[in-house]
Design a protein around this nucleic acid. Structure first.
Lengths: 256, 256
DNA sequence: AGACATAACTTATATGATAAGTTCAAGGTT
DNA sequence: AACCTTGAACTTATCATATAAGTTATGTCT
């Protein structure tokens, strides 16, 4: 039997690491999202290692968000998305109690850049995407006033809020911004959910939140990037204040 | 004990995914960087799955940069770092020819925020870290003028350049910024290296680059965050112009 | 005390087997 | 002709077991 020539090409590296690196190169060089990797068996013979080794290498790529795995099908190259990155940000934010505030601080910069670019570059369909989310917020807001405290609707509202910002990022035409904002929404969403369960309600009235978004959308429509920046900054500062306030009178539910 | 209760708790999820999720929770909840996970055998019995399943789950975490693996030792929880994130950014930037410019665009926002915070918050040792990198640039710059075109020294110069910006990010006291800037330097470094090999030299004279950094450092020392922002913006805009220019008259060297 | 051999633990990889998904086409029914 | 069924071929998911080769701790011997 051929003794795994390719796999051990670099001394001191494990076969799994080597295969993972080679697969990464392969994907970068000659594959695009949606395409399938070869079958495990085929790769195993190609790289001269066992199926186990191949599987572990693929799991590594999956952890990085480079491929998606599902049973019965070959691994598929992923569309780049912020989700995997979001997990990572969660990890960074984890330790520090002030980690979430760090995140909000960064988010402010990015969102301002994002909306500024969006005002300059948004295409028609991108604009429609933003308006769609805005409409979703209005609807959820209306229904939320009628049935007070419905958590499902509240969740829907929050999703549209997040979606609004993601749509703006998309409209910016900058993929890096899109991914980063998408990523940041992951830990933020988690934090929202937890604060919700901890009975810490958002202090901001709905109309105020909706009006702020409406204002931002309006600036983007008018292609006034400076005004858009200002509107976004105000909106985020307000919601950061709110978050901070919620954080301060929080420990009511724990002991002390 | 029942048959792998924990592993298959959520229907429709594979055992590997389930174990990976549980390990992630475990790490988030009660572990800190440097600690070791249990041995594979122990986890296998604990979660009621085979060693293979445990190994694949761990490989996923390793792909995310959550743990580090080495032979003979148990997996160790990683220090959060931008490196894994950098790979991811590389992936995002990969397709788009303008991806690198998107990255530079985002970097500008973050670096400005970074230096602004650093000017306000930098501690003594953090400042020393920045000064250290500055000194490194000066040294490398001097030696670079004497021995023209030494690639090793040039590389050293570039490392200090990157290190300078990372030191500022560190001084900002914002972990998210630190990680993101560290992450962005990965694809940027790769791009630098490639353009270097393609004989596309930086057009900027050394003194100009050094002076720009000197100026930034000075502003941080004086705790003048506004001036620091301006200096950083100028520096980055200049280097972006340079990069764009280098990119434009590029294809002459491709095939050789 | 210090060097060195060794046992105990641990990960890396391979082989072979079984179960359970997906895909696709042949053939039967309406 | 359009629609469903069925099964074969392919593919991944998981397991059990075995061997090799690292790391660490426990000694003993000088």
């Amino acid at each position: 039997m051929p003794e795994s020539v390719a796999a051990k090409s670099v001394e001191g590296q494990t076969a799994v690491a080597s295969v993972a690196a080679q697969l990464t190169d392969l994907i970068y060089a000659e594959m695009t999202p949606g395409l399938s990797l070869p079958s495990e068996a085929e790769m195993a013979t190609r790289y001269g290692v066992s199926r186990v080794t191949i599987r572990e290498a693929i799991k590594m790529l999956a952890g990085r968000g480079l491929v998606e795995i599902s049973r019965g099908r070959r691994a598929v190259v992923s569309e780049p998305s912020g989700k995997a990155l979001g997990e990572f940000l969660g990890w960074i934010v984890q330790y520090d109690p002030k980690g979430m505030f760090d995140l909000v601080e960064v988010r402010m910069s990015l969102e301002i850049k994002s909306v500024s670019l969006a005002a300059k570059r948004a295409t028609r369909p991108a604009l429609a995407g933003i308006e769609n989310m805005m409409q979703g917020m209005r609807d959820a807001g209306r229904r939320l006033e009628e049935s007070e405290g419905d958590l499902a609707i509240e969740r829907r509202f929050h999703q549209c809020d997040v979606g609004f910002h993601e749509a703006i990022a998309l409209a910016s035409g900058n993929r890096v911004i899109t991914s980063l904002i998408e990523a940041m929404s992951v830990p933020l969403e988690r934090s929202f959910f937890m604060s919700r369960r901890g009975k810490v309600l958002r202090g901001l009235p709905l109309e105020s939140t909706i009006a702020a978004h409406e204002k931002i959308l309006d600036c983007v429509r008018k292609r006034d990037s400076q005004a858009a920046e200002i509107a976004m900054r105000q909106h985020l500062e307000e919601s950061a204040r709110d978050m901070r306030a919620a954080f301060d009178n929080r420990p009511a539910t724990v002991k002390t």
